[in-house]
Nucleic acid binder design. Structure first.
Lengths: 159, 159
DNA sequence: CTACTTGCAAATCATTTGCAGATGA
DNA sequence: TCATCTGCAAATGATTTGCAAGTAG
């Protein structure tokens, strides 16, 4: 079945799990069953989630006692530290989203249905850089958050 | 000493205390000693503060037992609801700033010294409006937060 | 008067931590 | 092997709440 090809080396982006393994190794930490499961589940679909939702999702995949809440929190912290996910605080609780392999963006937050809508604005980047330059500020990250009512909820409310 | 002038009516902006009184009245609430003290102290100087700092400041002005922590929290909530102050969450705790009579602005947050630096960008306003229009989103408020290292801390760190 | 307020003590609640037993490299 | 992890139970800490006594209008 297989043919005899000449090979050449190409670089392929690491999967989130591989990237996480790399991060852990660099820190002298270990890739455990729990951390592997969490990184896989977190990156199994693109969505915003909080610790509780993730916990519920994980519980559905395994029998009790195989994964505890503290481990979920600890691992979310490590994934954040590794730059794989991004954390934001939304009305009291922490909400996470993908960062690794995903373009930077900002959010419209509907205060009726609580949904987060992503939007991209390269111009906004530029403005932030300008403001930073004026204040001799060294930017690490930035985030714009717009609060209001989404299209769906506007229709629903106007009835 | 006083002369005999003809008078004409002019509109003058309400003081924060007056504005708060107005808000309270509209809600069937009362202007108490505590609420008056708090609104006065909060607007006595332009600065960012949290509940603890405000509490400490207030304690310095009166004898024990005259103002409790729950009352401070309750009143901060009312001032926020009244649109006199604005609340933001900074590494766990709520931080407040003046909104009434103060132009809207955004923040550079130094993660070394924890200082908040304000910056104004009308262009940023426009971009947010544009993004909102594209998503048929009805904007209520928006906020841009830039994290990094301030000029002072950069110098301090580069030694 | 009397409904709204306050201070107190206790409750919340998401997140974190100490620790003894389990486990990955 | 043995340092790192995990689950458990308990701690945290900012903020909130129930309630009886105080007070503004």
């Amino acid at each position: 079945m297989s043919k005899d090809y000449s090979l050449r080396t190409v670089k392929v982006p690491l999967s989130p799990r591989e990237r996480f393994a790399q991060f852990l190794q660099a820190k002298g930490k270990r890739m455990t069953r729990q951390r592997q499961l969490i990184v896989d589940v977190v990156f199994s679909h693109h969505d915003h989630f909080d610790a509780d939702e993730l916990m519920a999702h994980l519980q559905g995949l395994l029998r009790r006692r195989e994964l505890s809440r503290p481990t979920v929190y600890r691992t979310l912290g490590e994934l954040t530290e590794a730059g794989l996910i991004r954390k934001m605080v939304l009305s009291g609780r922490s909400v996470y989203e993908h960062q690794y392999g995903y373009p930077r963006h900002d959010h419209l937050h509907c205060e009726v249905c609580n949904r987060l809508i992503e939007f991209h604005s390269p111009e906004l980047e530029r403005l932030v850089r300008e403001a930073a330059v004026q204040h001799e500020f060294q930017v690490n990250s930035h985030r714009t958050f717009v609060t209001g009512i989404c299209a769906d909820c506007q229709r629903r409310e106007s009835r």
